[in-house]
Structures are given as structure tokens and as C-alpha cells.
Simulated assay, not measured.
Amino acid sequence: MDGNNSFQSDILQMEGFNISMEFTYPLFFLIMFVYLTLLISNIGVIVLIIKEESLHQPMYILFCNLSVNDLIGNTVLLPRLMHDIVSTPKLISYAQCVTQAFCSHTFGSASHMILIIMAVDRYVAICHPLRYNSIMTTRTVVTLSVSAWGTSLLLVSVLLGLTVRLSRCRSIILNAYCDNASLFKLSCENVTVNNIYGLFFTVLLFSSSMGSIAVTYFRIAVICWTRKNKELNNKAAQTCASHLVLYLIMLWSGFLTIILHRFPDYPELRKLAYILFHVVPANLNPIIYAMQTQSLRQKIVQIFSKRIMHS
């Protein structure tokens, strides 16, 4: 129902993906495979780091932060998406929709914050290796991690708080998932404040992460250039390349999602960009960081070697 009257129903209908029947179950099983893969890989990394005392180091706390964030962000999105793919009609309560949007936006915000901390960690490790243990202590990393999550939760709480105060005159979510923009589009009230804060939130998040990562990588590049140390350059290339590639993937898929919200003629592309923003980094993070971190890689090889010998 569209109009100026308040919409009282607590049940919303999701638009979902516009796919033909023959692709319904292939898409369902593809998303299930992706979800199970990221569950196994991320939980595996977390359990390994917790169990192995030699991995109780600041750098691995950041890995755990990233994996926990990936698990939360995808668990609130993918199971619901799989349910909606095979369901007709696609119904969700307003409270569930707000919860999904809150967790999803927190995932996006925390991803940027954690990757900023990881960039700083790489800068200290490469440019100040002798001082690394005194600068990046466990207490420092825990404090930075709590600050990252706290900032994300605060920013997203204000973002969604401004939206839930609005009355609703529509009941259809013009999307395959719930996010802030889809929720405030349910209202016929003036949403100027929502748009202004949403713009502030986006600019603050992207500019702080892009600026911080650009500065740290520029300083790493300068150090590598001036010292002309082959071992240092190899270390920098190995540890920074994966971080930068994953950040750029997350950055551009996030940009694409935000931009496409302003162009309603491409709804399917916007939905796909948002899904990729969640699942691509979440699947690549544990693989790339595990393979490029010697201590973690050695532990994984040891575990698989023992299993093969006992089988």
C-alpha cells in the first residue's frame, strides 16, 4: 500500500531475486556451498588460533576479528537469502528486517575498521620490526579491536535509529535483503535527515579507511624504496599484496552497492554487488591469510599431515 497513511502491519514482503524457476535450486545450492565453505574455513582458523598457544599473538587476534566479523555478516544474510529463494511469498517481520540490516551494516563498518588496524600492524612489522613487540602488544591490539567494534556499533545504531523512528506507508522491501536504504524507503515521511547522516556515515567510513590505508602503504613503499633491502621488499610484497587486494575487492563492491541504490534501473546488479561484498572477502580471507602467514600455514600443514598419517 502506497500513500500518506501509516502502515501498521509488522510483516514485510521481500522482492528477492528475479530468477526463473529452473535456476531457483541451482542458485540455492550454490549459495549453500559458499556459506558452508566460509563457515568451515573461518571457524577452522578461529579454533586453530585459540587452541595453539604459539598463535596467541597480536596479529592472530586481528585474524580472529576478521573471521568473526565475516561469520556474523554472512550468517545474518545467506541463510535468510536461501530461505527466500525457495519461498513464495518472501515474508519477513519488521524486527527481523531491522536486525538483519543492523548486523549487515555493522559487518561492513567493522570490516573497514579491522582492515585499518591490520594495515597499521603491517606498517609496524615492516618498517619497525625491532619495535614491533613493544608497539603491537596484545593489550594494544585488543584495545584497537574493541574501539573498532564499538565505533561500528555506535555509528550503525544511530543510522538505524533514525530509520526505525519513521512511520511506514509501504510493506514491500525492494531488495533481496534488508539494509538501511530499503527500510527508510518504506516511509512516506521526509527522510532528508536519514540521507544526510547516511552520506556522513559513508564518507566518514570510506575516507578514514582509504586515507589510513593509503598513508600506511605509502610509508611502507617509501621505506622499501629507500632501504633497497631485497628481503624487506619481499616481506612487504608478500604480506601487503593480499591485504590490499582484499581491501580493494571490498571497497569497490561496497562502492558499487551504494552507487546502484541511486540508480533503480539496475536492481539485480545492486543485489549481486551486495552479496559479493559479503561472500568474496569472507571466503578469501582465511585462505589468503592462512597461506601467506608462515606460522599459521605450518600449523595447518602439521594438522593435515597427522590426519593423513593416522588414516
Results as ranks from 00 to 15, higher is better:
residue 211 G to Q: 04
residue 107 F to R: 01
residue 21 M to I: 11
residue 222 V to Q: 07
residue 67 S to D: 09
residue 63 F to H: 14
residue 18 N to I: 08
residue 224 C to V: 10
residue 263 F to E: 10
residue 255 F to L: 13
residue 100 Q to M: 14
residue 149 W to N: 06
residue 236 A to S: 12
residue 114 I to Q: 13
residue 235 K to T: 12
residue 237 A to T: 11
residue 246 L to K: 01
residue 248 L to K: 04
residue 145 S to K: 09
residue 6 S to A: 14
residue 147 S to M: 15
residue 284 L to H: 02
residue 21 M to V: 09
residue 187 S to E: 02
residue 213 I to K: 11
residue 127 C to P: 02
residue 239 T to G: 09
residue 266 Y to F: 14
residue 245 V to T: 14
residue 111 S to C: 12
residue 97 C to R: 01
residue 162 L to Q: 08
residue 170 R to W: 00
residue 55 L to W: 04
residue 301 V to A: 07
residue 159 L to H: 06
residue 175 N to T: 06
residue 204 L to S: 08
residue 220 I to M: 03
residue 56 H to Q: 15
residue 286 P to Q: 01
residue 278 H to I: 03
residue 278 H to T: 06
residue 29 F to Q: 05
residue 82 M to K: 00
residue 142 V to M: 12
residue 256 L to M: 13
residue 208 S to G: 03
residue 115 L to K: 14
residue 159 L to D: 05
residue 16 G to D: 05
residue 102 F to A: 03
residue 146 V to K: 08
residue 185 K to Q: 14
residue 31 I to P: 07
residue 29 F to S: 08
residue 223 I to N: 12
residue 195 N to I: 06
residue 234 N to Y: 08
residue 262 R to Y: 10
residue 151 T to H: 07
residue 173 I to E: 00
residue 189 E to K: 05
residue 54 S to V: 12
residue 110 A to T: 15
residue 64 C to R: 12
residue 60 Y to N: 05
residue 232 L to I: 01
residue 65 N to Y: 06
residue 240 C to G: 09
residue 232 L to F: 01
residue 131 R to F: 03
residue 4 N to C: 12
residue 108 G to I: 00
residue 102 F to Q: 02
residue 64 C to L: 05
residue 87 S to A: 12
residue 177 Y to C: 02
residue 115 L to D: 02
residue 15 E to Y: 05
residue 204 L to F: 14
residue 311 S to I: 09
residue 122 R to A: 05
residue 47 V to K: 11
residue 94 Y to A: 10
residue 136 M to C: 13
residue 298 Q to W: 00
residue 250 M to P: 00
residue 78 L to I: 13
residue 294 Q to Y: 10
residue 308 I to A: 15
residue 222 V to C: 02
residue 122 R to S: 03
residue 233 N to S: 08
residue 142 V to H: 09
residue 283 N to S: 15
residue 163 T to S: 10
residue 117 I to D: 11
residue 190 N to H: 03
residue 144 L to T: 08
residue 195 N to T: 01
residue 186 L to D: 00
residue 80 R to I: 12
residue 156 V to A: 07
residue 107 F to W: 06
residue 297 R to L: 02
residue 241 A to W: 14
residue 240 C to W: 05
residue 253 S to I: 07
residue 251 L to H: 13
residue 36 L to I: 15
residue 215 V to Q: 02
residue 148 A to M: 02
residue 68 V to M: 09
residue 117 I to V: 14
residue 162 L to A: 02
